[in-house]
């Protein structure tokens, strides 16, 4: 394992300390591994809290700041945070107008956030669970789909709604709408390496990729030959489009999984845009880069969000976080 770290056990705390050192607008509670707005909680604003396992940076800590999250709880690598942490984040975010929990749909995350919400007396909590990954078959009898790329877009858009001082129910409804209108699909060229495990989670021959991976270094749905970027765009976009009816144009998000450089992401974006054009789907906004990663996994995912007028306006609103920043 080749990583710029000290001891595997200290990775999460030390990375949070570095994040806070680099961004004076953020505070960090190292005991609870919570990143929070240094100027928060903002009185009268709905607080936005997310969290999950670490290894997905900039998600979630890098999305704390004006116009996005109020606090984020960082679990161990690929391990959801515990209720105590989520509770600490909730307190940091509570400006008296209620708190929205943004949870990616993984059994561990859902259960830990549930327990935290049960314990959060005196704070009104609403919860939105993202489950946008079309690689996973959805069924009443399974854990359901994973939450992946849509989470980034949702945190931005719900964050803008909260800055407008919308109430908790409204912010939650907007967040839910983002989840419902967004779908994602990912592929991996290489496995990532969990620091505590010390070696790659899976082995992948030079000429094979994993199609349908999430963001936890887990193997995907199937192993296929290395596709060209054009083929990769088809493999990622078609299953997403099969489930979306974008009428007013989409936000197209090409995400890097950690070790894939921008050169390749932009090249892939070009193929994705060309394919959407062929399908007559207008792209009105785009996002290209590593925003929800899987440690040092090479690979990419595509998320499409069917925008409407309000979602577009909220996407364009100012945001000031380490990971996304504009208009501020």
């Amino acid at each position: 394992m080749k990583k710029l770290i000290n001891a595997p056990a200290d990775v999460v705390v030390e990375a949070l300390a570095g994040l806070a050192a680099a961004h004076p607008k953020l505070g960090v509670d190292l005991e609870h591994r919570v990143v929070y707005r240094a100027d928060g909680p903002v009185p009268g604003k709905v607080g936005l809290v997310s969290g999950g396992g670490s290894g997905h940076e900039p998600l979630h800590g890098g999305f704390v700041g004006f116009g996005m999250l109020d606090a984020a709880a960082a679990g161990e690598v690929f391990t959801s945070p515990v209720p105590d942490q989520i509770l600490a984040a909730t307190q940091r975010a509570d400006g008296g107008a209620g708190v929205l929990h943004i949870v990616k749909n993984y059994t561990g995350d859902v259960m830990n956030f549930e327990m935290a919400a049960e314990l959060a007396e005196g704070t009104e909590i609403a919860t939105v669970v993202t489950n946008d990954d079309v690689a996973v078959e959805d069924s009443l009898y399974t854990a359901g789909r994973r939450g992946v790329g849509v989470t980034v877009l949702l945190e931005k858009i719900a964050g803008a709604a909260a800055e407008e001082r919308r109430g908790l129910a409204e912010v939650a409804a907007i967040a839910q709408r983002v989840n419902d209108r967004g779908r994602s699909m990912g592929l991996a060229l290489t496995s990532g390496t969990v620091p505590a495990a010390g070696k790659p989670t899976f082995d992948l021959p030079e000429d094979r990729i994993e199609l349908g991976v999430g963001i936890h270094g887990e193997p995907g749905r199937r192993r296929i030959p290395l596709p060209s970027a054009k083929e990769a765009a088809t493999l990622l976009v078609e299953p997403v489009l099969a489930e979306l009816q974008p009428s007013e144009g989409v936000l197209a998000f090409v995400n890097g999984l950690g070790a894939t450089p921008l050169l390749e992401l932009y090249l892939l974006y070009g193929e994705v845009a060309a394919l959407l054009d062929k399908h007559g789907v207008p792209v009105v906004r785009s996002l290209v880069g590593p925003y929800i990663t899987s440690l040092d996994m090479a690979g990419a995912s595509v998320t499409l969000l069917a925008l409407d007028e309000e979602l577009l306006r909220l996407w364009d609103a100012p945001v000031d976080t380490p990971g996304l920043r504009w208009g501020a």
């Binding site: 396992g53 679990g75 161990e76 690929f78 391990t79 959801s80 945070p81 515990v82 209720p83 105590d84 993984y106 059994t107 561990g108 259960m111 830990n112 549930e114 327990m115």
Partner: peptide, 12 residues
């Protein structure tokens, strides 16, 4: 266990 494990196995 609830407050140190996390993931699925912690709450379970």
């Amino acid at each position: 266990l609830v407050s140190t494990v996390g993931g699925a196995s912690g709450p379970l």
